[in-house]
Amino acid sequence: MAVIGFSRIRPMMYQDQITRNPVNRKHFVIPKGTVHFIPERCKACTYCWHFCPKDMLEESSAINAMGYHPPAVKEGMEDSCIACGMCETVCPEFAIYIEEANDRERAH
């Protein structure tokens, strides 16, 4: 398991190269990730579901002890996470994080 937050810088620099050198593209893979929630910390600021580039998160109907609705993965989008880590970096509450999967789906 790679911890996303700490390895974020590398994939981002690669991303720059992808746009500039499409020839290299076959060396890169689209990572896969799993979203984990710590709902008792969530204050429903809405950032994770608004800023997710795959638009795979939404406000859930659950209510935590502070009275907020924590986020959940949209139905049918469980496999959509590309482990970009946006939700994790933009979450002010340390209430959401990604685990990057080891078996990467090879890009076409």
């Binding site: 911890v3 984990h36 929630f37 340390f94 959401i96 994080y97």
Partner: peptide, 11 residues
């Protein structure tokens, strides 16, 4: 929903 055990930053 997957309940996280601990945030990687918790340490």
């Amino acid at each position: 929903m997957i309940q996280g055990k601990g945030h990687p930053k918790d340490a």
